[in-house]
Design a protein around this nucleic acid. Sequence first.
DNA 1: CTATGCGGGTGAG
DNA 2: CTCACCCGCATAG
Length: 440
Amino acid sequence: MLRAAEDVSMEQEALGSQSGEMVSWDINDIKLPKDVKQTDWFQEWPDSYVKCIYSSDDKNAQRHLSSWAMRNTNNHNSRILKKSCLGVVVCSNDCSTSDGGKMYLRPAICDKARQKQQRKSCPNCYGPLKLIPCRGHGGYPVTNFWRHEGPFIFFQSKGAHDHPRPETKSEAEARRSIQKAHAPSSPRLKRSRDAESLTGEKPNQDTLPLIVSKQEDLMSQSTFMGQEQVLNDCLSLAKGYSSRKSSYLIEHTPDVDCSKYLDRCKQIRSREYSYRGPAEPSVFAYSEYREQQTWNKTVGLGRNPLAEKYCSGSPTALAGLHCETLASISAVDAGIQHAPTKWDPMAKVGYQSFRSNVGTFGGEGMYEGKPHLHYNSNHAPSSCCPISPEEPCLIADAAHHYYQSSLPLKGNEWHFEEERKYTNLDHCNNEMFFNFFPLR
DNA sequence: CTATGCGGGTGAG
DNA sequence: CTCACCCGCATAG
C-alpha cells in the first residue's frame, strides 16, 4: 500500500544519512551485522526512518531512551523491544505564555498517570489540555525498536513524528520537582486540588506558579525553595538532566550563591528581551519546522566530544559558564558516552535535531479525548536555542544555523488538512539557566 | 507515583 | 499472521 511504499522510500533515504553499517539490515532480520566498524552516537530525538547501531556500552541506548514520549508496546517478541510515540500535550486553547511560548507538555508514559494528567487544566490559561497523538507512521504512532545483539544495540525508527517535541524526560522531571517543592501539600489537600481542576472550577496550585516564564518562575520560587534545590532544578532544566543527578554541580560549585544567579537571570532576561525585540514574529509553518529538522539531520550537530570546540564559539549562551565543567557534567551526570577511541570525533557528528521547544513550566494534564490534528502555535526564533543534554556548548552557534537554514521538504511527507503551525518555546530560558552557573 | 518491561489477550485487516 | 492496543503485574527510582 501507500504506507509500504512510503516506508521503502523513506528507509532508503535514511540509508544515506547514516554510517555504513545500517544500510543493509532491518531490526527484524534473523541475523544482524556483526562487522560493525562504527557505532552511532546516541540520538535524543530520532525521527523519520532511521537506523542506528549503538555500542552496548551506551547508557542511553541501554535504557532505550528517547526524548520523545515513547511507551512500551507489546509486540510479543522478547528479543525486540518496541515502543510507540504518545505524541505531545498541548493547550486546546492554543494559549501562549508571557514568553510567547506554547505549552508542549510531555505525555505521561504510564497509562494511569496519563489519565490523571488529562484531568488537569492548562497551567497557563486553565483551559483544557489535549493530547496530540502521534500519527507519523501511516496514521499510527511512530514506533521505535530496540534490539540488543552482542556488543551492539540496534535501533530502528519507523515513521516521522508529525507533532512538536514534548518536554524531555529530564525537563518533565525537573518541572515536577519544582512543582512539588513549590507547592508541597498533603495528599488530602492535593486530592482536593485535583478535584477542583477536575471540575474546572479553578486551576490547581500545583501548576499555577509554573506558567509565566521560567525566569520569573524560578526567581519567585527561590523564595520558597531551598536554594540548592532551585539551582538543582534550574540546572536540570537547563541541561535536560535528571534533577536527581545534578549533585555533581552542587559539589563542584561550592561557592554557589543563589542570589548571584538570580541577579544574573534578571540581567540575562533583560538582555534577551532587548535582543529579541518586542513581539517578534513567531509563527512558522510546520513545514518549516520539518525543514529545520531535516536540516539538522543533514548538517548534524556536534555532541559531547565536540563540546569544547563549539563552546569557544558560543559567547552568548555560555556567558559565565565554563565549558569544561559542562562537558564533564554532561558526561558524568547525563551518562553520555565519550567517543570510543576507535571513533573519529569529527566523524561522529550526530544528526539529532535541536530542541525546538524547551519544556514549559506548567502542570501536566489534559484530557485524552480523541484529538484531531489541529495546530496553531507560534514560533519564536531566538539566538539562543535550547540545548540537549548532550550538547551543552552548542547553543548559540547551532541556533544561529537553525534559523537560517532551510531545506526543501519532501512533499509527500506532510499532509495536513488544517493549518499546522508549531512553536519554538522558551528558547531563552535555558540560557538563563546556564547562567546560573558560577563564573569559575 | 511514575517510568519501564513483560506478556496475556483481543480485534481488525 | 501482523499490528495496534488494553490490562495487569513486577521492578526500580
